[in-house]
Amino acid sequence: MSRPQESQRPLFPFGNPFRMILPKGSHLSPRLIALLNSFEEALAERLRKLKPKDSEDVLTLSWMRLAMDSLCAVHTDIKTLITALELPVSDWDDKWIDVYLDNSVKMLDICIGFSAELSRLKQGHLFLQCVMRNLDSIPSKQFIRARSSLDDWKHHITLKSSKTENCFSVLDNLVATLNEPKVKNSSKGKVLLHAMYGVKVLTVFVCRIFAAAFSGSSKKLMDLHVPEKYLWAEAFTSLQAFVNGEIRTIYSSGGVTVLKELQAIHVVVKKLYPLVEDGPNSMEAEEYKNCISNLGKSASSFSEGLDILLKEVDGFFQILLTGRDALLCNLRVGTDVSSPVQRNSNLEQVVR
């Protein structure tokens, strides 16, 4: 009985991943195997690209944008796979739909929490702008105001948001649903849920990294175990070990934040603060001038990076929202109900 399946094996140079997840007698057509193989290889490649080249690239805003862009791409890939499977919603198991809708609500909540935290960090830029304006002048009164603004900035940046803590609770619930559901009598359903597992793993991993970065602690980082049967397992394990390891190293060594652009501002502020306590003397004039210049560049880079990352998070929010709305609309075929997407504002409006 195994003879007819041997012709399919070249599709999997590292072995057939389905031998571990499909019960005896199960059969996937060459087309279904090709679809899933294509999805998993694409996911593996995204994971490989997401692995930083060195430790200095971990948790830069550019890496975070790439991570969020990868999430958007993978969630788009799963929608493309669903279309290719030609699996009508009417054939979906009620449990699949319930889990999908429940998870999508959790992910929307996480996006709102991330957007709120990024907006809060963005607000800190106002204090740095006040510092720069006050340091344009030499009078001692301006130095006093600059010190006050620096104090306000340091206090603002170290505040912890309850929304971030809530993100960890939501992610814990998502982790509890990571186990791939069993599917009976549906080859297409097996392919769909096998692929969705990959989407959920990457989503939980990236969002956990973001939450850890915003919380200022590595205590709630989590190392997810992915079975070797998945074609993207090796790429994911390598990525997770590298990024989690670097974050733990930074926090264990007393780092204030793992956000690299924010670290750069902290370094400049630490040098600048003593110089504005009484005003720089002639020996410190050059260092003072360099600090002001570096602060301006670092603050501007951080602010611009936050703006771009906010747009990426909003883009992910919209992908989740439209995917959820498309499913709900398909479930309501034959009813005169307007699309929920027309009744939802964008992420920035939700946060406000």
Score class of each variant (00 low, 15 high):
30 P>K: 10
117 E>L: 01
27 H>C: 06
112 I>N: 14
331 L>E: 03
153 W>N: 11
255 G>Y: 04
226 V>C: 05
72 C>T: 04
96 W>L: 10
210 F>Y: 13
248 R>E: 11
131 V>F: 13
172 D>M: 05
168 F>G: 02
236 F>W: 06
95 K>H: 11
133 R>K: 09
321 L>A: 02
344 N>D: 08
350 V>Q: 14
299 A>W: 10
162 S>W: 00
271 K>F: 03
68 M>A: 02
12 F>Y: 14
113 G>H: 11
288 Y>G: 04
255 G>E: 05
312 E>C: 04
45 E>Q: 14
103 N>I: 02
136 D>V: 07
262 L>G: 05
206 V>A: 09
110 I>Q: 02
138 I>M: 08
104 S>G: 03
184 K>P: 03
351 V>C: 10
27 H>L: 12
65 R>G: 13
314 D>Y: 00
243 V>Q: 00
5 Q>N: 11
257 T>G: 08
124 G>I: 10
253 S>L: 09
107 M>R: 13
21 I>F: 03
299 A>T: 15
218 S>H: 13
182 K>L: 09
152 D>Q: 00
342 Q>T: 08
189 G>E: 12
275 L>A: 12
56 E>I: 02
162 S>P: 05
139 P>G: 08
18 F>I: 03
295 L>N: 07
287 E>H: 10
156 H>K: 07
273 Y>N: 11
120 R>V: 07
351 V>S: 03
297 K>F: 14
303 S>L: 13
232 W>V: 04
55 S>P: 01
111 C>H: 04
105 V>S: 12
187 S>R: 03
63 W>D: 05
244 N>W: 02
252 S>V: 07
72 C>A: 04
346 N>E: 14
253 S>M: 10
178 L>T: 08
242 F>V: 11
41 E>M: 11
342 Q>N: 10
189 G>T: 12
336 D>K: 12
236 F>C: 06
121 L>E: 12
113 G>N: 15
201 V>T: 08
301 S>F: 07
94 D>M: 12
101 L>P: 06
262 L>N: 07
273 Y>G: 06
145 R>V: 04
320 L>I: 08
48 R>T: 12
186 S>L: 00
227 P>A: 02
98 D>A: 11
276 V>L: 08
31 R>E: 15
89 V>D: 08
254 G>S: 11
139 P>L: 08
241 A>K: 12
295 L>Q: 07
216 G>D: 00
255 G>A: 01
254 G>D: 14
133 R>F: 07
159 L>D: 14
269 V>S: 07
288 Y>S: 06
190 K>W: 01
